[in-house]
Design a protein around this nucleic acid. Structure first.
Lengths: 205, 205
DNA sequence: TTTACATTTAACAAAAATGTTAAAATATTC
DNA sequence: GAATATTTTAACATTTTTGTTAAATGTAAA
């Protein structure tokens, strides 16, 4: 059929496409730039993927797929405390987002909501797990009962995602270099873990 | 010079441009769509603003300008408690972001970092005020001293911005309609005000 | 009513981007 | 080395988009 070569070429195209699509978005991405970055010529792009659209969808799907395993953190597991689960989730979520890009997904979903709607019931199942996990904790009176689990979901995701997707603006605002911002953010996962735990700890009035 | 007409035409073009640029971004925006939305023809767009670029910069600058008054919340004012200031900031910030778009600014700054770099020392002054305000509170032992003021800045902004710019995704994830998400978010400003206050309250030990 | 500005129309120019193709060159495998 | 698959080259077609222009029409105000 086909040798090693074609697989690694396809892969190198995908790597380039990922980079360009993630930084410039679908509308800003140029086929020429992708082929340049992949070190091949434009014609070969169409030889492997028929069109820009098709190539993009491949990249988008992969990005969405990478997001999902994260949510499986929230399976019920009597061995692990919720505090530890929370810490683990926050730390892996932030690490994950460094390499990938929430902004990419968000930008493209807003451009074309179908992208989300037509895919992945799986994703919503993951979210369900999350909400149910915290509902159970509330039922068992392990955390305070008066905070809507959906708020917990929103808050955690906001605290994890935004500081990374907004890194450029934050580092500019705070007058520090990108490197120094990264440095600053090293203490961040622990801080927000503590913050969340403090928020959730059961308090009789 | 020129009558009422031209002003309101220019304004209606700007309104349309704002809408299109904010939802599609510079790369996705089409001059045709803007002129259609403004109810005029494409030629008139160039009569008023020479080019797409120029028009965009006008929109971008205005969006950035609207952001700044918010930061003046953080002037020192011995009359008002920090808790009240915090609440007021969070509530106005969230209201502001509903109409405008943080995502727009972020997306375009990433596309072309010059947009931010070439503008507005004013903006950074506002951020300075914020950081200094909390440094003072720490010096006066009114809040706990062990949280870097920059983290406070990052956390507040994340909690305010992200739930709004990510509304589509959150409402999809949580399986509720856009309307219901808005409804849900009514209780949100108060929750995060409390959360922040709880985080900052001085704790010996 | 004349002058100046505002707006439309419609055609066009130019550039940028995507997509196609055929033929030649290169590499791989049998 | 013959056969097959990969890749380049280069030219071209098509479409989309931005930007321009000139002429006609409308409108408001001096």
């Amino acid at each position: 059929m086909n040798g090693e070569t074609s697989i690694s070429t396809e892969e190198s195209i995908l790597v380039a496409a990922r980079k360009v699509f993630e930084s410039k978005g679908f509308d800003g991405a140029r086929m020429q730039e992708i082929s340049d970055l992949a070190g091949i010529n434009r014609a070969l792009l169409h030889y492997y993927f028929r069109s820009k659209e098709k190539m993009f969808e491949r990249i988008f799907d992969e990005a969405l797929e990478r997001l999902m395993p994260l949510l499986s953190t929230w399976d019920h597991d009597p061995e692990e405390s919720w505090e530890s689960k929370l810490k683990r989730f926050i730390s892996t979520f932030i690490t994950f987002l460094k390499a990938n890009s929430m902004l990419f997904l968000l930008r493209e979903i807003i451009r074309k909501p179908d992208l989300l709607a037509s895919r992945t019931k799986k994703y919503r199942k993951g979210v369900n797990k999350f909400v149910h996990y915290f509902e159970r904790l509330k039922a068992e009176q392990l955390i305070r009962p008066d905070v809507d689990s959906r708020y917990i979901y929103i808050i955690i995701h906001s605290l994890c995602s935004f500081p990374l997707m907004n890194a450029i603006v934050f580092s500019y605002s705070l007058r520090i270099s990108g490197k120094d911002y990264e440095e600053l953010m090293k203490g961040y996962p622990e801080l927000i873990s503590d913050l969340m735990i403090q928020l959730l700890k059961y308090q009789k009035n």
